[in-house]
């Protein structure tokens, strides 16, 4: 862009900053190699060993994987985790979409968006503890309200059927505002002219939403889904704090099982194999989501 006739400029442009650049990326590279790539390799290696942290790790080949395939607790954990993800993501996406569309139609005030985002500011642990109290069987206001409208009390965290849906809803509470803001940002990218055209044709709000907004939002919705599904699969905090996997194994999600195997039973080899399984599940799910939602492509041009 600058005038090409200035020779001094051209000389500097060609100057090579390699040494300085290497110095500048050195700390980040240490972080990348030591805390991302090395653990990735080490995790995969550990999954082929038997190791209790004390004696040296022993190579056992596919033994851990063989045990895993035959392990009913593992399959249960996969089932529970999938159930959690489906409820969590399904509900969260719908609620977030509603909030985002309402925000766009009603008001763009920063105050409103801040209030919506507020739950995202507290930790999973805080969110889980608050709902542990609100939904307490005896004293929780949630159950008192249920009784007041004439329904049965529900053991939200203590019954096998309710534990996972409850935890899923708690995390919807924490993340829906964040997801709504992401979708809201996507809505801003849809040119207003498309809406005007629809209005001229006399399309109703509902029709406009399903006919225009939703299809044009697809790429962004796809990305939001991929991001939140990856996050959702890694659920741990809220389960560890509230039910710790119970009752029985009803909420023993994959992460919790991995943690138990490693830190309660000191079976690091098996825990690593479980982590690899988790990684594979994530890769497959992400790949299919990407294909199905065509998240990378836009219909806007």
């Amino acid at each position: 862009m600058s005038a090409p006739s200035v020779p001094r400029e051209r000389v500097r442009r060609r100057r090579d900053d390699t040494r300085l650049a290497l110095a500048f990326i050195l700390p980040a590279t240490i972080g990348l190699v030591v805390f991302y790539f090395w653990p990735l390799l080490r995790g995969i290696w550990l999954s082929f060993t038997s190791w209790d942290l004390l004696s040296p790790a022993q190579f056992v080949g596919l033994e851990n994987y063989r045990a895993m395939v035959a392990d009913p607790v593992f399959w249960n954990a996969v089932r529970v985790t999938l159930l959690y993800v489906v409820i969590n993501i399904g509900l969260q996406t719908v609620v977030a979409l509603v909030i985002a569309v309402l925000m766009q139609r009603l008001s763009r005030s920063t105050l409103l968006r801040s209030l919506v985002l507020a739950p995202y500011l507290v930790s999973n642990v805080v969110a889980a503890l608050v709902f542990l109290w609100i939904l307490d069987f005896q004293l929780g206001i949630g159950n008192q309200v249920l009784e007041w409208i004439g329904l049965e009390r529900i053991g939200f965290f203590t019954s096998e059927a309710w534990a996972i849906p409850t935890i899923a809803v708690v995390n919807v509470w924490r993340h829906m505002g964040y997801t709504a803001l992401l979708i809201f940002a996507g809505l801003q990218a849809i040119p207003p002219t498309t809406y005007e055209a629809a209005r001229v044709d006399g399309a109703s709000e509902v029709r406009t939403f399903f006919g225009i907004t939703l299809p044009l939002l697809r790429p962004i919705l796809g990305l939001v889904l991929i991001i939140s599904v990856i996050g959702s699969f890694q659920v741990f905090d809220s389960v560890a704090v509230t039910t710790n996997g119970g009752p029985v194994d009803a909420s023993r999600v994959l992460q919790l099982y991995i943690y138990d195997k490693a830190f309660a039973q000191f079976d690091f080899g098996y825990a690593s194999a479980l982590s690899v399984a988790m990684l594979l599940i994530l890769v497959v799910v992400t790949f299919f989501q990407y294909r199905v939602t065509r998240a990378g492509q836009t219909d806007l041009n």
């Binding site: 990348l32 030591v34 805390f35 991302y36 790539f37 090395w38 653990p39 990735l40 080490r42 995790g43 550990l46 942290l53 990856i230 699969f233 890694q234 741990f236 992460q255 991995i258 490693a262 690091f268 825990a271 690593s272 982590s275 690899v276 988790m278 990684l279 994530l282």
Partner: peptide
């Protein structure tokens, strides 16, 4: 490295910290 889920590195990182 954006593709490496944080959760996968936790266990090996703990071993390293140890």
């Amino acid at each position: 490295s954006l593709m490496v889920p944080a959760i996968f590195t936790l266990l090996p990182n703990f071993v390293l910290i140890r």
